Amino acid sequence: MLRTQRALRVLGPGDLDEVTGLLARDPVVNVVADFRARTTRLEPRWLGGEMWGYYEDDELVSVCHSAANLIPAMATPEALERFAERALRRGPTCAAIVGRSEDVDVLWERLGPEWPTPRDIRAGQPHLEISSAPLVEADPQVRRSTLQDLDVLYPACVAMHTEEVGVSPECNGGGPIFHAGVTQLVGTGRSFVRIDDGRVVFKAELAAVTPHACQVQGVYVAPDLRGTGLGKAGMAAVVTHALREVAPVVSLYANGYNAPALKVYERVGFRQTATFTTILF
């Protein structure tokens, strides 16, 4: 009887087409891993870590992005076992594990007993998509950010990150890196903002962009203006811009306990297509 040959190896630039071809089987859910592969071309110096590939009979069937975040994609049960083994050998080097709940749960069963206690485990995060015009009117004052906006935009980005993650991105000397990331998003046209009277009242970014999809992150409404409709109209504007100029599908994932945000996304026209889990360290 023939036996399936299985192997895990670290992928490189020569594997890029094979990786993007695999991720294209579920391109919206896998948009972040796909984006990282495309933008770094799997060059280790740009990836900031590794991309692992799991093969069966010389066919790539699963990958795992292992850099700032650990992200399994198209993961089979056998691949998850091997990914966990490699992660245990390398030790805890990531800030988060994120992906489909069924994949992250399996990884954490193996990693949890030996890795540090996480700051938070956010299970049941709806992954949402929209590929048609928003169901509500877009805010005409939401526009792409410019580098001239950085002085007022950056504090809003810090506030949003701190509120969402629970830790300021400027802690432990992280300010310059975070500022550089915000600047890059603005410079590449992936930051959207509404500024009223010199302050940011709404903002959002496209964290990942591929030919197949883009993913929204960092949605923020000034605290004193929440519940006024700014978030709904602002998201409609971001979706309109993105569908027209960036990608054919817009996605995001949100905490399951954030009922107000989920209601906004539903009214805009987003629909759930998967469930994610994020483990933060």
Rank of each mutant, 00 (worst) to 15 (best):
Q5I: 14
R6S: 14
R9L: 11
R9C: 14
D17T: 10
V19P: 01
T20S: 11
D26M: 08
P27Y: 00
V28C: 08
V31R: 03
R36L: 03
R38P: 04
T39S: 14
R41C: 02
E43I: 06
E43W: 06
L47E: 08
G48N: 12
G48A: 12
W52E: 01
W52H: 03
G53L: 04
Y54D: 03
Y55C: 15
E59F: 07
L60V: 14
H65A: 13
A67W: 01
A67F: 06
A67P: 06
A68R: 07
L70H: 04
I71C: 01
A73F: 01
M74G: 06
M74A: 14
R86I: 08
P92A: 14
C94I: 00
A95F: 09
I97V: 15
R100G: 10
D105A: 13
L107I: 06
W108A: 04
W108C: 02
W108R: 00
R110W: 01
G112S: 15
E114Q: 13
W115A: 14
T117A: 15
D120S: 15
G124E: 07
P126A: 13
P126L: 10
P126C: 15
S132A: 14
P134I: 07
V136L: 03
V136G: 01
E137T: 09
E137W: 03
D139W: 00
P140I: 07
R143H: 02
T146D: 07
L147G: 15
V152P: 00
V152F: 00
L153T: 05
C157D: 13
P169C: 02
N172K: 10
N172S: 14
G174N: 07
P176F: 06
P176V: 07
A180Y: 12
A180T: 15
A180H: 15
L185Y: 00
L185N: 01
T188H: 11
T188D: 11
F192L: 09
I195C: 10
D196K: 10
G198Y: 00
A208P: 03
A208E: 06
H212V: 08
Q215H: 14
Q215C: 15
V216W: 06
V219M: 04
V219W: 02
Y220C: 02
Y220R: 00
V221Q: 00
D224Y: 05
G231E: 06
G231W: 03
K232D: 02
K232M: 08
G234R: 05
G234Q: 05
H241S: 13
E245T: 13
P248C: 10
V250L: 08
A254G: 08
A254I: 00
N255L: 05
Y257F: 04
N258K: 09
N258S: 13
P260W: 02
K263M: 04
E266A: 14
F270S: 05
F276E: 05
T278M: 01
F281R: 00
